[in-house]
């Protein structure tokens, strides 16, 4: 913490951090708009939001988990498991709303399992969710026999592919979820508890914070959001693959970190995370427009993450 910044009120400091992330996004946008005339057009901007929406959905939950002092490495496989179960239900003729609820319940249950081992079992989040990463993926593969589930009903696909007021369905859905997550983090006791538990678990307990329930909630929310992300994906693709969601956790962690979440816990911002997601999305989109090879796109992503952390360190952290 640079001394000049510690003297500022925390609230304005967080906004200050979010503003910094936004400046990063604007810089990237300016660079690409010069390199490619089609970058800064309305259809392409909507496209970027659409491409970022799945990662954003995952990253919302990831941010809450990271703020609580944990990490959730299992989001990709949780997404795959709930997507395949939900898809199987739909194909078997279960009404779409029920199947959607079933898929989300699967994700929440996986989150509960992770959270229970961490909050009650006292195990380390990294290891528990690393185990979950293999476990849930294995369950999805075993359940499907490794083959994708095709033939999702049209009414379900219409949600993911439809638009409202010119915005794609997924963007609106994630926008609403992000608003809810923002309200939870900044306006509800759960948000305050997440910050407290991540900031200083022992002090939080002495102050009467329900530490176990707080941690549990974070992982359950993360699991639920992972399954919603997977529903968006299979709605667009029309099929549920048991291998979907590979490496989703890394993009979500990257977006949270770019947005100012501290992996030590206790700090993070929903607004920052969203901007972080759009930064990653805009970068990939812009490089694709410029016909840059996928290998170099990966390189750019890595550089952006590290540069963001260096700037963070230089401006706010010791």
């Amino acid at each position: 913490m640079s001394k000049a910044l510690t003297s500022l009120p925390l609230i304005s400091r967080i906004r200050f951090r979010d503003a910094g992330t936004l400046v990063g996004l604007i810089l990237i946008a300016i660079v690409f708009s010069f390199l490619s005339p089609s970058f800064l057009t309305l259809p392409n901007l909507v496209n970027i939001l659409q491409q970022s929406s799945i990662n954003a959905c995952i990253a919302l939950g990831m941010t809450l988990v990271i703020i609580s002092g944990g990490i959730d490495l299992s989001v990709g496989p949780v997404a795959a498991l709930s997507a395949t179960l939900g898809a199987a239900m739909m194909v078997a003729g279960v009404p779409v709303p029920l199947a959607v609820l079933g898929a989300i319940a699967t994700g929440v249950a996986c989150g509960f399992f992770n959270g229970a081992l961490i909050a009650w079992g006292g195990l380390q989040p990294f290891i528990v969710t690393l185990g979950g990463l293999s476990l849930y993926r294995a369950l999805a593969l075993i359940y499907t026999g490794g083959t994708p589930i095709f033939g999702l009903p049209g009414e379900f696909r219409a949600i993911a592919n439809g638009t409202l007021l010119g915005l794609p369905g997924p963007v609106i859905a994630v926008g609403v979820l992000a608003f809810v997550a923002w309200v939870i983090l900044t306006k509800t006791p759960l948000g305050e508890y997440l910050m407290a538990v991540g900031g200083n678990p022992e002090a939080a307990r002495v102050a009467g914070v329900p530490v176990t329930l707080t941690k549990l909630s974070a992982y359950m929310i993360s699991g639920g959001l992972a399954s919603i992300a997977s529903l968006i994906l299979i709605g667009r693709l029309g099929a549920a693959e048991p291998t979907l969601g590979n490496l989703w956790e890394l993009d979500a962690i990257a977006a949270s970190a770019i947005g100012g979440a501290s992996l030590m816990g206790g700090r993070g911002s929903i607004v920052g995370t969203l901007i972080g997601c759009v930064i990653l999305g805009a970068l990939r989109n812009g490089l694709t427009l410029l016909n840059v090879q996928a290998f170099y796109q990966l390189l750019a992503t890595g550089i952006i993450i590290i540069v963001a952390m260096l700037i963070d360190r230089a401006t706010s952290g010791k």
Partner: peptide, 19 residues
């Protein structure tokens, strides 16, 4: 160790037990 949530404002530290 047992008292303060360092990064949170005084208000949050005061409100914690009686949300």
């Amino acid at each position: 160790r047992d008292g303060i949530i360092r990064h949170r404002p005084v208000t949050a530290n005061i409100g914690l037990p009686a949300m």
